[in-house]
């Protein structure tokens, strides 16, 4: 238990009693780098939201190690960012310091240094004063990665971070994920690019409502498993019987 970052104890997640993730069991060890993949509607984003406490399981529970929920950094698939709000890139990234500064404390010199370091690490130096509305999609994604850097969290959840992102940016941001791994952080990323998964993620969860396979990436991403995942029926069945397990 003490070495697990996350334990899924028979977790069922869903909307209006229809499961999207059904009886998921398993654990993510501290420092693991896990890719979550599977067809659309397989419950991947739902799983990340539940880890983050944004939704309550219909059944079972998610244990979050000894860490508090605040020690999770989460980058959603479609960030609900109001890009018309007049905010600078520097201030957006500095929001990552929330856990250290809260509502009232000043952002001190150390924090400021960390913010500008993070902006440099994602290749946005010079953009500090730029309004977030004037960023391209890739630049905004870099800025959001910088915010995750500043958050300095033990567990990092990324939901399709490279959708509509060009190769160069993907490579740069992937390098950051590698760095987090070396620093012993736990990374869970939802990804569709299987080549990327094979290359960078040692472990994979293939999700299609239930866990089709979960383990070492090479053993999970087999032709048979991927075919099984594709056969998941997406639409909820209003006449489906109640699940006998609980």
């Amino acid at each position: 238990m003490s070495d697990s970052a996350l334990v899924f104890d028979d977790v069922t997640l869903g909307y209006d009693s229809h499961p999207v993730v059904h009886h998921l069991r398993g654990r993510v060890e501290r420092g693991d780098c896990v890719a979550v993949t599977g067809p659309n509607g397989a419950g991947k984003s739902t799983l990340l939201k539940a880890i983050n406490g944004l939704m309550t399981p219909l059944g079972g529970r998610i244990e979050c190690g000894a860490r508090a929920r605040r020690d999770i950094a989460y980058l959603p698939q479609v960030a609900e960012i109001d890009r018309s709000f007049p905010l600078s890139v520097g201030d957006l990234v500095a929001a990552g310091a929330w856990r250290h500064c809260g509502i009232f404390s000043a952002i001190n010199g150390t924090m400021e240094a960390r913010v500008s370091q993070a902006i440099g690490d994602v290749g946005l130096t010079g953009f500090e004063q730029r309004a977030i509305g004037a960023l391209s999609g890739g630049q905004l994604q870099r800025a959001l990665f910088a915010r995750v850097l500043v958050q300095d969290a033990a567990i990092i959840l990324l939901d399709e971070p490279f959708t509509a992102i060009d190769n160069a940016t993907t490579r740069d941001l992937m390098a950051l994920i590698g760095r987090w791994r070396q620093e012993g952080r736990t990374v869970i990323a939802v990804l569709h690019d299987l080549d990327l998964v094979r290359e960078h993620f040692p472990r994979t969860l293939l999700l299609a409502r239930t866990a089709v396979a979960w383990g070492a990436t090479g053993e999970v991403l087999t032709i048979d498993n991927l075919a099984a995942a594709r056969h998941m029926i997406e639409a909820p069945d209003p006449h489906a019987p109640l699940c006998p397990v609980d």
């Binding site: 944004l54 999770i72 989460y74 960030a79 609900e80 960012i81 109001d82 929001a95 929330w98 915010r147």
Partner: peptide, 8 residues
Amino acid sequence: VDPQFLST
């Protein structure tokens, strides 16, 4: 700017 970020 980002209500979901803060709510987490």
